[in-house]
Structures are given as C-alpha cells and as structure tokens.
Design a protein around this nucleic acid. Sequence first.
DNA 1: TAATTTATGTCAGCCATGTTGACATATTGC
DNA 2: GCAATATGTCAACATGGCTGACATAAATTA
Lengths: 163, 163
Amino acid sequence: MADINYLRHSERPDAALTEPALREAIELLFFAYRDFTGEPDALLARHRFGRAHHRVIYFVGRQPGITVSELLAILKITKQSLAPVLKVLVARGFVAQAMGAKDRRQRHLTLTEKGQALEERLYHIQSARIARAYRQADPAAIAGFRRVMRAITDDPQMGRGGR
Amino acid sequence: MADINYLRHSERPDAALTEPALREAIELLFFAYRDFTGEPDALLARHRFGRAHHRVIYFVGRQPGITVSELLAILKITKQSLAPVLKVLVARGFVAQAMGAKDRRQRHLTLTEKGQALEERLYHIQSARIARAYRQADPAAIAGFRRVMRAITDDPQMGRGGR
DNA sequence: TAATTTATGTCAGCCATGTTGACATATTGC
DNA sequence: GCAATATGTCAACATGGCTGACATAAATTA
C-alpha cells in the first residue's frame, strides 16, 4: 500500500518520507488552508461575496491593469465561471474595466478605491494570521516553509507576480 | 494600510513581516493548495466524486470507527452537508456504517475494501507530491514547514489524529 | 417512570462556484 | 479579406455548502 513513497533519497531511510510523515503533511495542508480561508469568508459574506470574489480582488489588486485572460490563467478557471463574479464586482463598483490602448479588445482590470479598501481589509485579516505564525518561527523555519510550499506548487513562479 | 503587520517581534525590524513577505505567504498557500488538490480531483471525477467525498474517505480511513459527529467536528461542516456525501459513499460501497456497541445511537464509519483501495490511490497521488517536495528540502526546511503550517492552523492538533 | 438531552437522519429551499458547449462581437494581424 | 484572438453571453448542469424545521431512537437525568 503506497510503498513507493518509502523510496529513499539517498541510501539510508529518510524519516521525512514515511507514510505517517507524509500523511501529516497532507493534513497540515488541509487544516491550514481551511483556517486560513475561514476568517476572510466571514467578511466577504457581509458583502454577499464569496471566495471567488476574493481571489479576483486579490489578483487585480496585485496586478492593476491585468487583462481578463491573464486573470483566467492565474485562477485556472473558465471565463464562464469568472463572468458572473467579475460582473457583480464591476456593477457594485469594486473593480473598473478599461479598454486596452494598444489592443482595444482587451479589458484591463483595476480596483476602484472601494475595491482597494476591501482588499486591504482582507489582506489585513490574512496577513495577521501569517504574521502570527512567522513570529513564532525563526528565519530558518520561515525559509523552510517557503521552500517546501514552492516545491509543492506546480509552477513556483506563481501567476505573474514572479516572486 | 495594514501597517499593523509591520509590528516587530523584538526591537529590530523583521524582514519576514513586511507586506511583500506576507503577500508571498498568502499566495504560496493559494497556489500550493490549488495544485495539491488538482490531481486527486481528476481521479475522484472518474468516480463522480468530489472533494467532499475525498475528505470523508480520508478521515474515515485515518480513524476507522469514527462517528458521524466526530467527522462533522473535523470537517467543520453541517450534518445536512455531510448527509448526501455520506449517503452515496455508503450506497456505492465505499463506506460501511456500524451501530455503536456501547451507544446504539452512534454510527461508526469504516472504509470497505473498495473504499480502502480508493483511499490508497488518492493518498498515493498526494503523498507523491509531498515526497517530491520533501526530497528537495533538507530536514531543517521540513521542520520549518511543519512549524509554520501548524502555527497557521487554529487547532494545531488537527482532528483526532493528534500528531 | 417521565422528561430531557443527544446522535442521527431527512426534507425543503436557497446560494455560490464551478463545468461544457455553443454562439456572438469586435478587433487585430497576416 | 480572412483567420485568429479577446471578450462576452446564454443555457443546462453538478457540486457542495447553508439554514430551518422536524422525526426517531436511545441514553441520561430528574
């Protein structure tokens, strides 16, 4: 049963690659993500927004002027999924659309002041949780966290931010 | 704007608590979780199961004999949300229910052989991703990852496994 | 014993978030 | 002029959550 995961990096057994250790990591991802998204969800609900709106607000805030297709690529969802979310954000004045100067087919998205204000509140909630965790860890632990998280991710450059 | 996050742990400025560093962490969580769940989703879809079924299979597999209310507490969802998911898992022979010996109101859940087989395949997919990441990291980095992930989580003992 | 609490199940209605497929429109580039 | 591109839209559907209300059986408590 899943013995393949007991394969060694070098020749000696590696405690980090045992089934219990790997199951622990699987659970850490589940619980950390669940709790990480729980708090913002409450604020979003007060605006009748969901996690999908949060993601749009976040990435438009990070990359003002991002096009619709760039946003779709980051989120890895279909345009039909994005459409109603974006529509309500524009209709309610959180996101603004501007026609491209060079390519007039494109819609460049930016946050309005109202959108920025909400983004900041959401960022504040989530960054407080991260900051609390980082304060409990030394620099080496933080570096390890970053390294492992990047390695778990398919494309470690993550969207366009390219951090 | 979110200046509170610039608060220091000691007296000197801490590079880990700057806005760029905290935004990086937020994005690491988003992308790592997205990619982590992407692969199992494809296998689950072939059974017409979703992520909710995966979670039930996972935690029943981890704690055979778990009761319905214990499962609800781990997942933090309502019984009305769990009901249809559990129903189809039982109906299609992945999960078995047994009346409690001591308390006959309780339903103790276990995986059938079929359920175990699916759980193993799902575990294999996810553990392979973790193992790949862990192999790229030294023991200190892995320890740092675990420490930060626990600190991000509300209840670091995570469910009943109590790792 | 009687009353209450607990564990579970179920029904109804609602909402958010995703999907595929098909088609429309405007614009760009060859 | 034509094909490709960027975006938008409609329809139908599936999943996975939620609240509220109510039902049943079993355990616990008064």
